[in-house]
Nucleic acid binder design. Structure first.
Length: 265
DNA sequence: CCCCAGGCACAGC
DNA sequence: GCTGTGCATGGG
């Protein structure tokens, strides 16, 4: 983790962007939770530390420390000037893997919405410190959300989607865990049975919530990036292009392209 | 008044 | 299968 940049990673639009809050430079804690992680004083090159209540295994999973990121980035940058530049700009960026329900809430709320307001709404969906389940990340669990009054959050039409989805998970046996054994397309189709979950949100859940690094979420920025830099436009063509060109590292390519596009396009 | 925001559901071809 | 439209809400 030589070049690991905690702040860049958490603020790069992945699930933790909406569920962690910055308390100081390179230091964060979960919303409505007690857990903290932070980088050592040396910023880059410093050791990643965490509070005792946040296990080493959890940190490892959250930031995918099992991945050989320098090898992955070297591979992506080879014979690709765009990704080579993105890797230079965002060397400290890592993919994250969060809880699938947490990711579902964040990205269901994200549809046709902007990041500040997504943050605001997701913050309101966290249980208070004296509430239930602080260990799971602080976001309201589906069985609680079903009966909660969240109208004050002004989610608009997303509220009905979210509550219906919560009901399917809490009371109708929808299981994220069962998806782990399925192929990508099968798991994707299953996720899209949830109200308010379309192809883009499903891919975000697969990537950021279920650790499927072969997923390639196509939001407006990634679409713009692929159209501009690779000349591929139609959604299905982009899907095939990403699978063929990047395979199991498509998720890493997507994250780099997202960050790069937001600066360059 | 307009348009946009890490899209989706639904209708109509 | 692909394309267009309405959608709650807030900000520019």
């Amino acid at each position: 983790m030589d070049s690991f940049d905690l702040e860049l990673t958490i603020e790069s639009g992945q699930t933790p962007t909406f569920t962690w809050e910055k308390t100081a430079p390179q230091r964060f804690r979960r919303i409505a939770g007690k857990d903290e992680v932070w980088l050592g004083k040396g910023r880059l090159g410093g050791c990643l530390k965490s509070s005792p209540t946040f296990s080493r295994a959890s940190v490892r999973r959250l930031f995918r420390l099992q991945d050989d990121v320098s090898a992955i980035y070297a591979d992506l940058a080879e014979d690709d000037a765009v990704l080579a530049e993105a890797v230079r700009r965002f060397a400290g960026l890592r993919l994250t893997e969060s809880d699938p329900w947490e990711s579902t809430v964040c990205f269901l709320v994200s549809q046709n919405n902007n990041i500040p307001r997504i943050k605001q709404i997701v913050r309101g969906l966290h249980v208070r410190p004296d509430g239930l389940n602080p260990a799971s990340g602080g976001i309201m669990r589906p069985e609680k959300l079903v009966h909660a009054d969240v109208s004050a959050l002004k989610m608009g039409y997303r509220e009905a989607f979210l509550k219906q989805t919560a009901r399917l998970v809490a009371e109708n046996g929808f299981s994220f865990e069962r998806l782990r054994r399925r192929g990508l397309d099968e798991a994707r189709d299953a996720l899209m049975e949830l109200p308010g979950v379309g192809p883009k949100v499903a891919d975000c859940i697969l990537l950021y919530g279920l650790g499927r690094t072969e997923a390639f979420p196509q939001d407006v920025w990634v679409k713009k990036a692929v159209a501009t830099w690779y000349g591929v436009t139609k959604e299905n063509n982009v899907k095939e292009f990403a699978a063929e060109k990047w395979g199991n590292n498509a998720g890493y390519a997507q994250q780099l392209l997202f960050c790069h596009a937001r600066e360059q396009l």
